[in-house]
């Protein structure tokens, strides 16, 4: 199997879906002539032309709403927000419209739109460009939220998202574009709303997703050197949230740490911990720990920024606290 980057995997998924279905098109800022600010859509403009690769003005409200409207009328738009931070401007279009029309009109209409949004911290972009606001989008029924951690999952999940009849927020962590992983040739999908065990172990369960998953795997490797075997669960989808594998693992290890890049308060970890205690209280041997971003707006200065973000050392420390 070829080892390709996450950027390539996402690009391949988009290209293959555009070849498969003429109703799939992409729109967003600088995705066409420029080739995408993260180069995910490089070459698409020449390959598919301006009708299917639509450069938009800097108008997030219109991008969000027009993509939703085109989806309601039967197309399958993939709308890109240059960064998830700019999707805040389109929040109403995403949450009040794309995520609500199916329910609010009694099931009459569908809104099969995919919103792609790169995000995350760690790139010295300052407070407004470094958010990991995944949990905010995951709060609302009606929207599905996906955030892959590996090239394989990214390709399969994006294909599933494009083929889904529901509106989907597809969150890509920008620091993961360069990571490589094995991706098979040919068509496959990874189902939305299904978690995955990324590493087996019997001493502690680490539950994570996206960039947090990579941090968790790195921590698990170092722990293994000390004879501690961590099982690492990748949530992959935040809504619907599949707690099955995490709960099964917890019932085996009796201890858990939840890792996420977003802020700790009201975070993904908060939700996962709540569900673990609700459904696995009898198996709890120790407090369930959360490793997350400190409660600060992310600063520019590199060391300062890194000190606010998650890393393997913090995960290892959390594991050792409860072993």
């Amino acid at each position: 199997m070829a080892r390709i980057t996450m950027r390539q995997a996402i690009s391949d998924a988009l290209r293959e879906e555009m070849h498969r279905d003429p109703d799939v098109f992409i729109m967003g800022e600088e995705i066409g002539v420029w080739g995408g600010t993260y180069a995910v859509t490089r070459g698409f403009y020449d390959e598919f032309g301006p009708e299917r690769v639509r450069d938009t003005p800097i108008s997030e409200m219109a991008i969000g709403g027009a993509a939703a409207g085109a989806a309601m009328a039967g197309l399958r738009p993939v709308a890109e927000f240059m960064t998830i931070n700019f999707a805040f401007v389109a929040f109403d279009a995403i949450i009040n419209h794309a995520a609500k029309v199916h329910y609010m009109f009694g099931g009459q209409m569908k809104c099969p739109v995919v919103f792609r949004a790169p995000g995350g911290g760690g790139r010295q972009l300052g407070a407004t460009h470094s958010h990991t606001p995944d949990v905010i989008f995951a709060h609302f029924p009606g929207l599905k939220v996906v955030s892959p951690a590996t090239p394989y999952d990214a390709k399969g999940l994006l294909k599933a998202a494009i083929r889904s009849d529901d509106p989907i927020m597809f969150i890509e962590h920008a620091t993961l574009y360069q990571i490589r992983g094995e991706v098979p040739e040919g068509d496959y999908v990874v189902p939305i709303g299904v978690s995955d065990i990324k590493r087996t172990g019997s001493d502690v369960t680490i539950i994570a997703y996206a960039q947090g998953l990579q941090v968790a795997l790195s921590a698990a490797e170092q722990l293994a050197n000390e004879g501690i075997e961590a099982e690492v669960v990748d949530l992959r989808s935040l809504r619907p949230l599949d707690m099955g594998p995490a709960l099964e693992s917890f019932k085996k290890t009796f201890k858990a740490v939840v890792v996420e890049e977003g802020h700790r308060s009201y975070g993904i970890g908060s939700e996962v911990v709540a569900r673990l205690q609700e459904e696995g209280f009898d198996y709890m041997d120790a407090p369930i720990k959360r490793v997350a971003q400190f409660e600060v707006p992310l600063p520019y200065s590199q060391q300062l920024e890194q000190s606010a973000l998650i890393n393997a050392d913090r995960v290892i420390a959390a594991v050792k606290e409860i072993l």
């Binding site: 709403g65 027009a66 409207g69 085109a70 989806a71 309601m72």
Partner: peptide, 8 residues
Amino acid sequence: PLATGLAL
């Protein structure tokens, strides 16, 4: 924008 999208 939904209308714009329908027209699109």
